[in-house]
């Protein structure tokens, strides 16, 4: 029996809700009170909503990064590390360009993030295509390497002079992305106090661009052939190395969006572990979206809701661990996967 499309679309959020409810019941709390706290914490008002969208921004980028690799038959679980390396590149470019006029450091930072993220992802791609080492293994290991690299950079070469914190000095005022609050204060409206910034729009544009890449370009077509049937791809003259390296580079390029959102939009400096697991959430987001680029923002929104709602939950319900969100995410992915599976069988 083929589930109705409406059911498929709602199944994952409902599963997340049900999982949260059961966990609340298990520790003796009223599930409906918990739901209400999550909804008001994530959607009730300008500030919660802006935070939800700010988290969703990261998840759109990482979800797209995983999806674009998966569309080429590659399982990139190194998005976390690719974001980190992109952040290192971004910080170096911004700090080096600190004395340049106005927007130059900003543009240089975004470009450097893309180049570093893409390069860091392309290496495992090249290793798989040419040396046969599987990207699942190499990208995981590259996460550890990236994390160690960032630690070294921040305790030694990039650390702000005189500071005891493992972070760089603040970026120049020109190297900051336009924020929602900037617009609100210019209008004289009350500000939200959130870091929601132009990266969100960039993320939506990225989703559209990936959609076009997958369905409307020759490169996307060749990647799809390679993923669906490598033998047929070989017969059709598709260059497997090129497909794999390109897909991984694109994936890393998208991962760099996390660095842009976090560093140029929120932190204004390079800090340790700024993706905070967004790279792994991206796997769940892509899975839930069935690797369809236009579905990624919707799935990311759900995960943004869970992240923000779960964080707020801890304030109202100290007995409930914020880890409840992880359980909810897990159920959402399970159900999304099952709905996808039943679609394939139908």
């Amino acid at each position: 029996m083929r589930p109705a499309p409406v059911f498929r679309a709602l199944a994952a959020p409902l599963a997340a809700l049900a999982a949260t409810g059961f966990c609340a019941l298990a520790v003796g709390e009223n599930p409906f009170g918990v739901f209400a706290a999550m909804v008001s914490g994530a959607l009730g008002g300008a500030e919660p909503l802006a935070f939800t969208l700010y988290y969703a921004t990261d998840f759109i980028f990482t979800g797209l990064a995983v999806a674009v690799a998966y569309r080429a038959g590659l399982f990139n679980i190194g998005v976390e590390g690719q974001s980190l390396v992109a952040g290192a590149g971004l910080a170096m470019a911004v700090l080096a360009g600190g004395t340049l006029p106005a927007y130059a450091p900003l543009v240089a930072g975004v470009l450097a993030a893309g180049v570093f993220g893409a390069a860091w992802a392309a290496i495992p791609g090249w290793l798989q295509a040419r040396r046969g080492s599987h990207v699942v293994i190499t990208t995981i290991m590259f996460n550890f390497v990236a994390s160690a690299l960032l630690s070294w950079l921040l305790v030694d070469p990039l650390r702000a002079p005189g500071s005891m914190q493992p972070e760089t000095r603040a970026f120049a005022p020109g190297a900051r992305l336009w924020k929602l609050d900037d617009a609100l204060s210019a209008l004289g409206s009350p500000t939200t106090g959130t870091p929601l910034n132009a990266s969100f729009l960039l993320a939506l544009a990225a989703a559209a661009a990936v959609h076009i890449y997958v369905f409307r370009t020759r490169a996307g077509f060749e990647a799809g052939v390679q993923a669906a049937n490598p033998s047929a791809a070989a017969c059709a003259g598709v260059d497997a190395t090129r497909v794999v390296v390109r897909a991984m580079a694109l994936s890393g390029l998208l991962a760099s969006g996390v660095a842009v959102n976090e560093l140029l939009g929120a932190q204004n400096r390079l800090i340790l572990d700024f993706p905070a697991g967004a790279g792994y959430v991206g796997i769940a987001v892509a899975l839930m979206a069935g690797s369809r680029p236009m579905m990624v923002p919707l799935a990311a929104l759900l995960f943004g809701f869970l992240a923000q709602g779960g964080a707020e939950l801890g304030l109202d319900y100290p007995r409930i661990s914020p880890q409840i969100v992880v359980a909810a995410q897990g159920f959402a992915v399970l159900v999304a996967g099952a709905a996808l599976g039943s679609r394939r069988l139908a």
Binding site: N229, A232, A234, C235, A236
Partner: peptide
């Protein structure tokens, strides 16, 4: 296994191996 991609549309299969030719639009299909 080699001649077609089973899940793909017939027209995409009819282009297979020639996807680089200009008549299919080149870089932008």
């Amino acid at each position: 296994k080699q001649g077609v991609v089973a899940g793909f549309r017939a027209d995409h299969n009819a282009m297979l191996g020639r996807q680089r030719e200009a008549r299919f639009g080149g870089r932008w299909l």
